[in-house]
């Protein structure tokens, strides 16, 4: 019965080494309650299936143009040999996507059953040799808690290490439902200041911080890694981070605290969805200084120092 549920997934990445121990498969769930202005996976935000257009891949209307012929709803037009998509006319019939020879037109999002995801990841069984495992990320995986809990349960049943990456902005019940099947939870705390949090992510952080406390107290056997994406001019001051660290000190169970330096690699995806990218022109952060800061904070929190993990 359970296996009939589907999850909406926008990517499954193989051979991931930055999202938990060992070599892992990462399942990215679609839909997120936040709207962080630095988000590098904008395709993860909406829970809908979304048509997207990758102009770099399109070979041009002159030599192709199949999509225009296929669209009977006049949602596609031509500009300088490339396509313009008018989302108001589009009815998501996918005809253009099916015909596109270069996959320039494609859909973000695919509904998959647990079996399908399991097959697509479990056949990488060699990866488990690494003591790696599965990580469910997003978007916010807990928006699809039934699916994620059932999926992780499958993996736990065969002894595979399980992890999720969550914003924490969900009902405690959902978090609880999924946490019981997790070995590891990556929990984002973007900033402590509530107002700032609302401004840059669109939501309040009260629930998030409460959930973190409950999680830490209620699941002593789950490893909790708190993560903070460090964004230039938004939360990149030492005090922003130490503030969070002070809060983390109060947690009964914390496995690690990681800082993730901002990068702008998501920009291309904003263009594919014709979304505005507000951080245009903001430079990526120097990794080494963030790394040093991270080590300092770890010391503050009595956490073991980590060797460099090689994030870009």
């Amino acid at each position: 019965m359970l296996k009939e549920i589907t999850g909406r997934i926008f990517n499954i990445q193989k051979y991931s080494v930055h999202d938990g121990p060992g070599i892992r498969d990462v399942v990215f769930m679609k839909g997120c309650p936040l709207k962080c202005i630095w988000c590098s996976n904008p395709e993860s935000q909406s829970s809908d299936l979304q048509i997207a257009y990758n102009i770099t891949k399109c070979i041009g209307v002159n030599s192709c143009g199949h999509c225009i012929k296929a669209c009977t709803f006049h949602a596609l037009s031509v500009s300088e040999d490339k396509i313009v998509l008018d989302r108001r006319n589009c009815v998501n019939c996918n005809k253009c996507v099916d015909i596109c020879c270069s996959k320039a037109l494609h859909i973000f999002g695919k509904d998959m059953t647990i079996d399908e995801v399991f097959q697509k990841t479990q056949n990488q069984a060699g990866a488990w040799r690494s003591n790696g495992g599965i990580t469910v990320s997003g978007g916010e995986p807990l928006l699809q808690a039934d699916f994620v809990a059932a999926l992780l349960k499958e993996y736990r049943n065969i002894g595979v290490h399980t992890a999720i990456e969550t914003t924490g902005f969900v009902h405690w019940e959902k978090l609880k439902q999924v946490a019981q099947w997790c070995n590891l939870i990556h929990f984002d705390v973007k900033m402590l200041d509530a107002q700032k949090h609302r401004k840059y992510t669109g939501v309040d952080n009260i629930i998030i911080l409460e959930n973190l406390k409950k999680l830490s107290a209620g699941f002593p056997n789950v490893n909790i890694i708190v993560r903070t994406p460090v964004i230039p001019d938004i939360n990149d001051q030492e005090c922003d981070i130490t503030e969070i660290a002070e809060y983390l000190k109060t947690l009964p169970n914390l496995y690690d605290y990681e800082l993730l330096p901002y990068h702008g690699y998501g920009r291309s995806k904003y263009e594919q969805l014709e979304m505005a990218y507000e951080l245009k022109g903001v430079a990526s952060l120097e990794k080494s200084s963030i790394y040093d800061l991270n080590q300092c904070v770890r010391e503050m929190l009595d956490l073991p120092r980590k060797t460099y993990a090689g994030h870009l």
Binding site: N11, H18, F28, S40, H263, K269
Partner: peptide
């Protein structure tokens, strides 16, 4: 491009 939490 391999970065934590991001892929393309």
């Amino acid at each position: 491009v391999r970065v934590a939490g991001y892929s393309a």
